[in-house]
């Protein structure tokens, strides 16, 4: 067996002139949970679709458990469970029939099929919903059903594209719990999400993608540290009076940046870790007639770290790992439909 559950090397995917994935390389070890983060259009879904054998790269290699995704898609499909970002459910089909169909389609027969369905329904708590029509389920229930479907063949690797999108907090907690249990069972989970705080709690490593390139690969603490090392400490400031005064004031200050305006103040960044400088800033605020009622240091969260990192990349303060040179022989034409009728 290969050392890595997922191995990607110099992967490119072009859609005409659009470089959706631009020479990314990474490895995810067996049994780990990796979060895949990036803005919309960063190339997350394209990468995940290539790994799930649903798309082909323009160039590069991708392997699941040592099996080449491009050359042996059928073998790879037996190893992966796939949860797409959005999907419809079937009309006139109960939850049990839905799982029964996929179990049949995966080649399970008779007693073995019933056993697999029972196990999956128990795990995802779908037993009470067995006779409900699948298109009448809530979003949370639907996600549990989709997770159940993707686990029917007991895959080693689970690829989940935005599974928490659109879920209410309760459903999100349930999903997070299920993912944790799966991770404990030793499954490799590759999960994309926009909710970075949740990914930080769940994932062993995080993979940040920007414009088709990996800009960070490591655990959440390393991202925070790398962002911290760029300088700056966050402070939460509460004012008595017009919060606009804080932004007007911050513009004129040399080492202070307003990150976010709030109803009663805002979040500022002071570009030094020296507590003495922070005290200077506070005294300047008071001196400039800002009616400060609260001023405290804030813990940097993943969102801040990610946004810092992106803005530093945009400003040229942080280097992005350069992919190997690629001279496309012929850019493949765009595959979007161009219907005249």
């Amino acid at each position: 067996m290969s050392d890595s559950a997922i191995r990607v090397h110099n992967l490119y995917r072009f859609f005409g002139p659009l470089q959706a994935v631009n020479g990314i390389s990474f490895e995810i070890p067996h049994g780990s949970v990796c979060g895949f983060v990036g803005a919309n259009g960063a190339g997350k879904t394209t990468t995940m679709r290539i790994l799930a054998s649903l798309d082909y790269p323009t160039m590069g290699h991708a392997e699941i458990c040592g099996i080449n995704v491009i050359h042996h898609p059928a073998e790879v499909r037996r190893l992966i469970g796939w949860m797409p970002d959005h999907f419809g459910n079937y009309d006139n089909m109960t939850v049990l029939e839905y799982l029964d169909f996929y179990a049949r389609a995966l080649g399970y027969k008779g007693k073995e099929r019933r056993q697999r369905i029972e196990e999956v329904m128990d795990f995802t708590d779908l037993v009470p919903l067995a006779d409900r029509f699948s298109n009448k389920l809530s979003k949370g229930m639907t996600q549990r059903l989709c997770l159940g479907r993707s686990l029917l063949h007991d895959p080693q690797v689970l690829i989940m594209d935005e599974p928490a999108a659109g879920l209410d907090p309760k459903a999100r907690v349930e999903l997070k719990h299920l993912i944790r249990v799966l991770a404990k069972e030793g499954k490799t989970i590759f999960i994309s999400s926009h909710i970075l705080s949740e990914l930080g709690e769940m994932c062993d490593t995080l993979l940040f993608l920007n414009n088709g390139r990996i800009v960070h690969h490591g655990d959440s603490e390393s991202l925070k540290r790398s962002s911290d090392s760029l300088g700056g400490v966050l402070y939460d400031v509460q004012l008595d009076g017009d919060p606009q005064a804080l932004s007007d004031w911050a513009i004129l200050q040399p080492n202070v940046e307003l990150l976010e305006s709030r109803k009663t103040g805002g979040r500022i960044r002071i570009d030094t870790e020296d507590p003495g400088k922070a005290a200077d800033v506070l005294s300047r605020m008071v001196k400039d007639n800002l009616r400060v009622i609260d001023f405290h240091r804030e813990q940097r969260n993943l969102e801040d770290a990610f946004i810092d990192m992106l803005s530093n990349i945009e400003n040229g303060n942080q280097a992005v790992p350069t992919p190997p040179p690629f001279h496309p022989p012929i850019p493949r034409p765009a595959e979007e439909p161009e219907a005249l009728i």
Binding site: F87, A105, R149
Partner: peptide, 17 residues
């Protein structure tokens, strides 16, 4: 078309069908 619209084709081609 309903399978394509519902994004269920991908889920089906990943089985043995």
């Amino acid at each position: 078309s309903s399978e394509i619209k519902g994004n269920t084709i991908d889920m089906m081609v990943l089985t043995r069908l």
